[in-house]
Design a protein around this nucleic acid. Structure first.
Lengths: 153, 153
DNA sequence: ATAATTTAGTTGCAATTGCAATCATGACGG
DNA sequence: CCGTCATGATTGCAATTGCAACTAAATTAT
């Protein structure tokens, strides 16, 4: 990244920090005999949805995964008893994915480890003020990216 | 991410923004018939090293890839004529990876596309002041993470 | 109603990845 | 000097991914 520009410079660090932090979190989860982050993401988007259920495509959008990836992830989570599939009442093509009690329990256990890592690796280096500023910048990016998505579709 | 804490909240957005931006950049590169970001990363760390050469493990550290991943990436880059391998003079076990002229040329073409995406998706939402603040926060995280690495080793 | 188009989800296949060996070389202690 | 241990890079194998094809159901237009 031939970063003359301070924004490009920030981006380069953004990418590296993300990679390093993710690597560490995965290691911490593995060390605690817990599944990886993508499982967590699916469980979390489900748990935060009303009744713990979402359609496959919604999981994909919220967790930023490809559709086919969500299908496969759901297969594995289902095999592990963490989610169940159900027909979608409004749309015969759709499939709902529902988090189970075991799924909720596992997510909570993962969060204990995950949170500790976030706090130690990321949060510890930000003041509350910085965190808020960062949040709002990131929110601008995210809204803009999601907006584009809709327009393209 | 049950984000009560503003830092955890920032982290959640950090991850989502990263995923969305990366997805878009990969799409832009593919649309321009260019290779993916991991090729770029290897080419860039090489190009920014003295004489365009680094040992495999150094590539791995700087680009945040696993060792075996670098081996395979180098295989593909080599097959494409973008890098060459050479023995390491100081250490008989080591392998140097050297970027070729074609490698430099390709990286430059990729950077044209990459830069445009960074500016549009990331930079456009940050003032210079914000970018600088973000850079310094991220730098703190990165230094701390890299420091830990050394201590663990 | 019916044919054509779009959308949701899944699947086949090829390519990529991660982890645990493996092989070769260097470093160290006796 | 020799045996043991650590390190650099690669490779085998199983698991995961991405893309394009596919099936089924809904939407639209005729």
């Amino acid at each position: 990244m031939p970063a003359a520009d301070p924004r490009q410079h920030a981006y380069a660090r953004f990418v590296v920090a993300h990679a390093l932090i993710t690597e560490r979190i995965e290691a911490a989860l593995a060390a605690a005999d817990l599944p990886s982050l993508d499982w967590y993401d699916v469980l979390w988007v489900l748990e935060s949805a009303p009744e713990g259920r979402l359609r496959m495509a919604d999981i994909a959008r919220r967790a930023v995964f490809s559709r086919s990836n969500v299908t496969r992830l759901a297969d594995r989570l289902q095999k592990a008893g963490l989610v169940a599939r159900a027909d979608c009442p409004q749309d015969g093509r759709g499939t709902m994915c529902v988090i189970t009690a075991r799924g909720r329990a596992l997510r909570a256990r993962m969060w204990a480890v995950y949170r500790k890592q976030i706090d130690g690796l990321f949060g510890a280096h930000l003041s509350v003020r910085e965190a808020e500023a960062l949040s709002s910048s990131l929110q601008r990016m995210i809204s803009s990216l999601r907006q584009d998505e809709k327009e393209t579709a």
